[in-house]
C-alpha cells in the first residue's frame, strides 16, 4: 500500500495554487487533510502526478463571523471547529457533528473544505451544509464564484467544482438564536461512515415548529436536503403523526446502496428513524 510517485508542491497563496493547477492540468490534485485522497493513492485508485498541498496557505485557515453568517475557511480542521467559540455559540450542530466524524487523529487532519469538496456521500458535513443552506466559495482561473451547497453535489465524487478550481471557504447563514438542532448518526463503530444519519435545525414558538430544515447523510450517492420532510413538521407540535410524515417524506428521497452496513430497506428504515430522533432531540433543545 504505497502511493505512486508524484511531485509535491506547497504554494503559499490561493493564487499560486490556482496557477499550479492551471499549469499542471488533469495530473494535479489539491491536497487538504489527505485522509480520503492518500488512502486512495495507496491503493493506486488515484495516481496524481502532482500534489498541491494547501497547508501552506494561511489564508485558508480560520473561522470568522461576517454579519449574520459564519465563514469557515476551507483548511479549518474538524478539531479546530471543535475548539471554535464562534461555532459553539452560533452553529453548535457543527460541533456535535464534528465529534461524530472518524476518530480523534483524523479530526486533527480532516478539514471542512476537504470534507465538503470531496463528494464522498459518506461524509457528514455536506448534508449539514445543505440543511443550513451554506454557500461554497470557489476560486478558479476565471475568478471567484459561489455555489450553494444545495446545488453542489451531482453524484458520488462528482460535484460542481471544475478542474482547476479550489473551494476556499464555506459561508453559513447563522440559524436563528434559540434554534434547536441535532445530528443523529447510526454507525457500526467509531471510524465508520454512517449507516444512516440525519441533521435537523429548527425553530419553535409556543410548542409549534416554525421552521425546520433536514439533511441526510449516506442515504444516496449525494447528500440530501430533505425539503419536504422539513416542511412536513412546520406548524405542528411534532406529534407522532408529524414525525411519521417527516420520516416518510425523507425516506421517499433516499436511495442508499446495499453494503456491509445493511440492505437498502434497512438503511432507509433507519434513515427514517434518525430523522425522527433528530427532530425530537432538536425540538427539546429549541428555546
Amino acid at each position: 500500500m504505497i502511493p505512486g510517485p508524484f511531485t509535491y508542491h506547497r504554494p503559499g497563496s490561493v493564487a499560486d495554487a490556482l496557477k499550479l493547477l492551471a499549469e499542471l492540468g488533469d495530473e494535479a490534485r489539491p491536497l487538504a487533510g489527505g485522509h480520503s485522497l492518500i488512502p486512495m493513492m495507496k491503493l493506486r485508485l488515484a495516481s496524481p502526478e502532482h500534489l498541491i498541498d494547501l497547508h501552506g496557505i494561511t489564508a485558508l485557515k480560520g473561522v470568522v463571523r461576517e454579519g449574520d453568517r459564519v465563514v469557515v475557511r476551507a483548511m479549518t480542521t474538524q478539531h479546530e471547529l471543535l475548539g471554535s467559540d464562534v461555532i459553539a455559540s452560533i452553529l453548535p450542530i457543527l460541533k456535535e457533528t464534528s465529534l461524530l466524524i472518524a476518530d480523534p487523529q483524523i479530526r486533527y487532519c480532516g478539514t471542512l473544505g476537504g470534507n465538503v469538496a470531496n463528494g464522498d456521500p459518506g461524509n457528514d458535513m455536506p448534508a449539514l451544509m445543505q440543511l443550513l443552506n451554506a454557500d461554497f466559495l470557489i476560486e478558479g482561473p476565471d475568478g471567484q464564484r459561489t455555489v450553494a451547497a444545495r446545488d453542489f453535489y451531482q453524484g458520488a465524487y462528482f460535484t460542481a467544482l471544475e478542474p482547476g478550481e479550489i473551494l476556499t471557504a464555506i459561508s453559513i447563514p447563522g440559524p436563528a438564536s434559540g434554534h434547536g438542532y441535532a445530528y443523529e448518526k447510526l454507525k457500526r463503530k467509531v471510524g465508520d461512515y454512517a449507516t444512516a444519519a440525519a441533521g435537523v435545525v429548527m425553530t419553535m414558538e409556543g410548542g409549534i415548529v416554525t421552521s425546520c430544515s433536514i439533511g441526510l447523510t449516506n442515504l444516496a450517492d449525494t447528500p440530501l436536503w430533505a425539503q419536504e420532510a422539513g416542511e412536513a413538521v412546520v406548524g405542528t407540535s411534532l406529534d407522532d403523526a408529524a414525525l411519521k410524515r417527516a420520516a416518510d417524506a425523507a425516506i421517499a428521497i433516499m436511495s442508499p446502496a446495499a453494503d456491509g452496513r445493511g440492505p437498502v430497506e434497512y438503511r432507509k428504515h433507519v434513515g427514517g428513524i434518525m430523522v425522527q430522533r433528530a427532530l425530537k432531540r432538536a425540538a427539546a433543545r429549541a428555546a
Binding site: R10, I38, D53, H55, P104, C109
Partner: peptide, 13 residues
Amino acid sequence: GRSVKSCTVFAVQ
C-alpha cells in the same frame, strides 16, 4: 501538538 496517524501523512508535509 496534534495526534496524527503517520501512515497517512507524507514526510514532506
